[in-house]
Design a protein around this nucleic acid. Structure first.
Lengths: 136, 136
DNA sequence: TTCTTGACCTGGACTCCGTCCATCGTAGGA
DNA sequence: TCCTACGATGGACGGAGTCCAGGTCAAGAA
């Protein structure tokens, strides 16, 4: 399983059963889970895992660039294991499901110099909103 | 002050001192305030105003399309009174300040049909991230 | 102007998401 | 095998937002 764990081990991570399980959950399915959903699925494999551990592990994966944090609404953040392939998100305004999408063009290039107000702009996130087939 | 109040009155809103004050706060400054910041400024004008009322009023203004909700990080939502002029946001990754920007091009057009997965896509929000002049 | 009434406001309890911390356990090098 | 620093635990805590029962008041009617 999981080059993810290999990469983490390579970065000096201690490989514990908890971290293995979290990596496995993220690896398993390419949906965008909330921390609590990750915890629930992880607890299915390792009943004693705590919420704090899941939060810590997710946070560490994010700061290592292995996982991407997505917060499309004001509610719980979601975690996207597809961090190595740049992409944007398409969100259903009704049920909240998220799909990775690959638009053409580069939004960064669309921000002219006189619209940058002295900022050093490093990234552009695009969130498309609409209704998914089952909610429409 | 405020065509905003006039428009709201036109939609059948009862104009109360609380709503007047919230409208005034949003009108006054074109920064992007959190609900608590709105509450603090409103309380300066009308000390007894409650948090719940501020939340209700902001929520109503949003659902009438008079104010726009912006949640750029996982933290508190911010409220943008500039809802009638389409624009995107430029956010400082360090201090969190937000500027309205007007990129060229239309991100919606950049999402080809085969990337829509049956969704009826209605909007695209772009968030540019970087460091503002004082944080750089 | 006064009356009436339903929309509105209040404040406090509550939920949800996330963080912190003291303590205990254990992965992995010696 | 032993040691120890890194990691896990779970319970308390904090911020943001929602809910609700009861009191208040804007604005139309008379």
């Amino acid at each position: 399983m999981s080059d993810l764990l290999e990469r983490l081990r390579g970065r000096g991570w201690r490989v514990t059963s908890q971290r293995r399980v979290v990596a496995e959950v993220l690896d398993g399915d390419h949906v965008h889970l909330t921390a609590d959903e990750v915890h629930a699925r992880a607890a299915h494999l390792l009943p004693e895992i705590s919420r704090a551990t899941v939060y810590n592990t997710l946070g560490e994966m994010v700061s290592l660039g292995e996982v991407m944090e997505v917060s499309t609404d004001g509610r719980a953040k979601r975690y996207d294991p597809n961090a190595h392939h740049p992409h944007q998100h398409l969100v259903c305004s009704n049920c909240g499901t998220i799909r990775d999408v690959h638009p053409t063009g580069s939004p960064l290039a669309d921000l002219p110099q006189d619209q940058r107000f002295g900022f050093t702009v490093s990234a552009a996130e695009v969130t498309y909103r609409g209704l998914c087939p089952s909610c429409a």
